[in-house]
Computed example of a mutant assay.
Amino acid sequence: MIKAESRAEATWEGNLFQGHGSVQVGSGVIGTQPISWATRTERSKGKTSPEELIAAAHAGCYAMAFSNTLASAGHTAERLTVNATCTFEQIEGGFKIGSITLDVRGKVPGLDAAGFAQAAQTAEQGCPVSNALRNNVAIHVNAHLED
């Protein structure tokens, strides 16, 4: 059963390497953002890329999944901070998203480092974005419990 639909729109003008475009999300919450080939392979210079947007989506989804995993085990995080790094790689015949590394730091009273690390791995298995990418993109989780 569908619970929700999310929408986005992209516009592109010109060829891949010299062209440019924009993306916007249906809610309008982040406004129209410029994209280009250069933002995928060089510095962003005030523009975004599909990989940056995937990293943002993955970080947000994983933070929610981790919060739920902790709550299901009787723990409430004071804070979880997730940094996602998405790689864009050249392969034979083209390009692909190769990996995403999720670096999570958290403050969770009553939980030790081993328990935090285990919960971090469990959360990755339940994260909808991880599950959409699994078996096509390598996903790595680094978990760091703060005092």
Rank of each mutant, 00 (worst) to 15 (best):
M1W: 02
M1A: 06
A4V: 09
E5S: 09
S6H: 13
R7N: 10
R7M: 06
R7A: 14
N15M: 05
L16R: 13
F17G: 04
F17S: 11
Q18I: 04
G19D: 05
Q24N: 07
V25N: 10
V25F: 09
G28Y: 03
V29M: 11
I30C: 12
S36M: 02
A38M: 07
R40V: 00
E42D: 14
T48E: 02
P50G: 15
A56K: 07
A56W: 07
A57P: 13
A57I: 09
C61K: 00
A65N: 02
A65E: 03
S67Y: 04
N68D: 15
T69S: 11
T69W: 05
L70S: 12
L70K: 09
G74K: 10
A77Q: 15
L80S: 06
T85E: 12
C86T: 11
C86L: 13
E92T: 12
G93M: 00
K96R: 15
G98E: 10
G98F: 07
T101I: 03
T101S: 01
R105H: 15
K107T: 14
V108I: 15
P109N: 11
G110F: 05
D112E: 06
A113D: 14
G115N: 06
F116H: 08
F116R: 06
A119L: 15
Q125W: 04
C127M: 00
V129S: 00
S130G: 01
N135K: 14
N135C: 05
V137W: 04
H140C: 10
H140Q: 12
V141P: 02
V141L: 07
N142M: 08
A143W: 03
D147V: 10
D147T: 11
D147Q: 14
